[in-house]
Design a protein around this nucleic acid. Sequence first.
DNA 1: CTTCAAATGTGATGTAGATCACGCAGCCAT
DNA 2: ATGGCTGCGTGATCTACATCACATTTGAAG
Lengths: 187, 187
Amino acid sequence: MEAKETLKAHIGKFVSLTGEQFDYFFSHFKPLSFKKGQVIIAEGDTVDCEYFVISGCLKSFFINDDLKMFILQFAMPTWWASDYNALYSQTKATINVDCITDAEVLALTNNDREKLCNELHIVEHFFRWRTNRGYVAAQKRLLSFMNNNVKYRYEELLKLYPELYNMVPKNLIAAYLGVSRETLSRL
Amino acid sequence: MEAKETLKAHIGKFVSLTGEQFDYFFSHFKPLSFKKGQVIIAEGDTVDCEYFVISGCLKSFFINDDLKMFILQFAMPTWWASDYNALYSQTKATINVDCITDAEVLALTNNDREKLCNELHIVEHFFRWRTNRGYVAAQKRLLSFMNNNVKYRYEELLKLYPELYNMVPKNLIAAYLGVSRETLSRL
DNA sequence: CTTCAAATGTGATGTAGATCACGCAGCCAT
DNA sequence: ATGGCTGCGTGATCTACATCACATTTGAAG
């Protein structure tokens, strides 16, 4: 029931579903448990789900030709993660998603999301709102990238998500900030 | 009628509205003409519209404390522009929008968009889709920023939007790429 | 046609951060 | 405990790009 309550609280922050509507909505999610290090989406995979994090921490990341890793997102509880480009346009994954810690998630298929959006206007409203927030956050991060040096971005990140400092190894934080682990280590 | 047809074709790429539905939808847009250099949204403004570009080219940009400009987006015909953070969360603008060339746009208020999304499920569907695309594009740009050097990003930009090369001064392209105009000039 | 400001090119020099190389500490599995 | 692996710090050097300075071209307005 933990997972169901977490999702309900999350949705409830923006829209009001009746109990019946929420039960129906929830019935499309599939609970999954993963171990630390387990891969959820690998480059080249067909992507048909997005994942709502109940506990633990995921990362979505890109590996370039030099095998350098860039982290797009740390997904903490009540965050969503997937390769959205692949999911929305039904192409192969170019982004990977795996588990930084043991994690419990709720999986929702692209088809089910679209079905739910069609059947329940308010669910579509919720998902529009969610992506709006994601879009604004992505723009802010882009601006911060262009405007601020590494030190400032590191401090801002820790201010916003202090739990990352202990939860996530420094080399991953460096990969999120787009900087080498050596430079990060020198503050 | 030019503007109406442009918007209709744009919407029609993703959803099908009846003629009646589209007329109603369109009736909420207000046509506006601007001259080159005119400011549409200035930092500190209350933002209550987003703008659909019919002709010409806008830019949305941020000015930092050192008066350095960073361009978030060039808005060409059929693109949308605003300070979405301010628009969605009803806060003061931190992003500016102005005209690189003379421009015709259609303005839609936040209230009207929300009203339309409520009244017509399919309109909400359209706007969800639009933001999804924007979100994916923003993520791609972020990745490109972390992964590729200026030269590569410049070439990719020109490959994607060759018209920018002649339409937009190089210092603005530099501000989009997050690089100094001198460095851009040296390729 | 003339004038002035904006746009562009280019040299010299400075610097944030990358890369390479190494040492060391914790930690899990044999 | 012995080994090997992952995470973390730190020195030395390298490089892409910033910054400052100035020259040249261009194009719009009088």
